[in-house]
Design a protein around this nucleic acid. Structure first.
Lengths: 345, 345
DNA sequence: CTGTTAGCGCGTTCAT
DNA sequence: ATGAACGCGCTAACAG
């Protein structure tokens, strides 16, 4: 690493070396206007010799001061869920030559606006966020200025914006019904913090499906962690330590799923289990889950951005992506008192 | 979403409304020069009313045309390994107010230069890449222009650059020795494509550790997929179908680990197994692995970038991050013919 | 086909 | 403490 900090060549430098005007170089490089074959050659040679690299920034500044990147704002980058969504966004954007800027709020509601502001100052083309703050109205002005804002996984609060969410209720309802069909009446629900929209929805799905089956005494089986980061392992232990423990457990999100299964693994008598969000080995291990496609979640969000860039007008769009129960065995375990599981009738 | 595309306010607009010069606004906003308290107030109010947002791009253009983001170029965004590295990079950059631009080459060696060129045109501050092309000399010019280039996981070819890699050989050697200590002499090695530096290193580690123990006839137990995407499941099946099958298997990378374990799971007699790269449930399932910290890999890369931005001179730095064997049981299974495993002496 | 002028939004260098 | 002029790298709008 030598410090031979050679200066970066500009259009003007190339023009000088090629003996033409800057604009001609511009034309030659971008293939925009018409340039004679000879001069184009001359320009290209000069550019190569000077290691010229067009400055997209300056170009965009001239065009209206917007970059080519879309910002994706997430809470915790170590959560694989976000990562898969990011993968979908990146892929979809790449088809249009756009790049993804990734930023983190560390799941701190207070830092959302700060992080977003910094990104907007960098003139990102659009914003895709997993809302964590309780109020996104601070983005209203930016939206009016023409910056598309798309919310993923959770809708925005106090802001008109496109969004992509999952069919959370339906997913959990399907899981509950499936357990009931096998004979369960005592079904537990463990999940991460209750405040989040997704978890609220899933809780509502859990309750409505139970109600539907005439089960009205399940509140004691609900365990929503009060704080982010608390593990579902404890919740499961608590539930199973009850005098009248549940015979089946549903987890409401990915972290809770893995934590819960960790606790249920190797326990007997076997407690039926259905997780939320598919994961590696869930198939090999025979774990039933309410699955969905996180990559598609990202792709849809990016598509909404692209559509909005194409046509800023029109009403906000709310997309709901399907969830579906995958039966692999763990959710099909009957309760111990079921007719089929008794040794003799 | 109405189409009320109101124009974006600039420094000049704010200046006009506040009745001062543009430079005064600039001073007031950046808190740089000295501004009287009254005018500062006036400027701030005007800025708020116009929803003014300073344009970082224009500012940076004035400063030398460089953005605040560092590009991270990876092959396949769906590989959790890259994701964790990305997490480390993002976190470390965030401490300096920088953001991460994520780009993908789809593991196509030919597209690396294309993607990188586009990023450089966007004037990223630095480049962190997982090299996939056979030659990174195309970056030499850029390096001389002062753009730090850091390679992760694999060193660059034909380019002087900082890099962070793992202690690949040592990791696999430790695994092999551990298996040998339990009594294994027939040890298989399954891995993804052979061309990659990491896999070559691990293969060499495998061979040297065997040689060290006087085992010289293990070539028939080596299975390196010729193409990316081929699964290690087949390789494992092949190995176990041999007349004289191995009694232990080592996987050389994360994808191979999960695929191999999928195949070994529920098989009997139990084949000893050690994977490479830790993963969710490896602990719960009792799978021994050669582990390392992917997030730290990213953080180190980002630190190299920051150091290089701070001081471009100095020799290239090569950092090797440690790997270590985590014994959880699967790697401690003795061979069927071992004295301890026989029922009676 | 090519060059000139002007200006994108901001900061620097002088002035005042 | 504040302002005017100029320039960062590039391109639109006009020449010629």
């Amino acid at each position: 690493m030598t410090a031979e900090q050679q200066a970066r060549a500009t259009l003007a430098d190339v023009a000088r070396l090629a003996g033409v005007s800057a604009k001609t170089v511009s034309r030659a490089m971008s293939g925009d206007g018409s340039v004679s074959e000879v001069t184009r050659e001359r320009v290209m040679t000069a550019a190569k010799r000077l290691r010229f690299r067009p400055n997209t920034l300056a170009r965009n500044l001239r065009h209206g001061g917007v970059t080519n990147s879309v910002a994706f704002v997430i809470g915790d980058i170590t959560n694989p869920f976000y990562f898969n969504v990011a993968a979908g966004i990146e892929r979809e954007l790449a088809t249009k030559g756009m790049t993804m800027l990734l930023a983190t709020t560390d799941d701190a509601p207070g830092s959302e606006a700060v992080v977003v502001d910094a990104l907007l100052a960098q003139r990102v083309r659009a914003l895709i966020i997993v809302p964590i703050a309780k109020d996104q109205s601070y983005l209203e002005g930016e939206r009016q200025l023409g910056t598309p804002v798309v919310c993923v996984d959770r809708p925005a609060h106090h802001l008109v914006a496109d969004s992509v969410v999952l069919q959370n209720r339906l997913g959990i309802e399907e899981a509950v019904r499936s357990l009931i069909a096998v004979g369960h009446r005592k079904i537990g629900f463990v999940c991460s913090p209750a405040e989040l929209y997704t978890h609220q929805e899933r809780l509502l799905g859990y309750r409505s499906a139970l109600l539907e089956a005439g089960i009205t005494d399940s509140r004691r089986y609900e365990r929503l962690e009060p704080v982010l980061g608390a593990t579902a392992e404890e919740s499961v232990r608590e539930l199973l330590a009850l005098d009248d423990p549940p015979t089946a457990i549903i987890a409401g999100n990915n972290r809770a799923s893995t934590a819960a299964w960790r606790e249920l693994f190797n326990r007997s008598p076997r407690v039926a289990f259905i997780g939320f969000d598919d994961f590696e080995f869930a198939d090999t291990l025979g774990i039933s889950v309410v699955a969905y496609d996180p990559i598609e979640l990202g792709r849809e969000a990016a598509r909404l951005v692209l559509a909005r860039l194409d046509d800023p007008s029109g009403p906000p769009r709310q997309i709901e992506l399907p969830t579906h129960l995958i039966r692999r065995g763990s959710g099909e375990v009957p309760p111990p008192d079921a007719p089929d599981s008794t040794i003799a009738p």
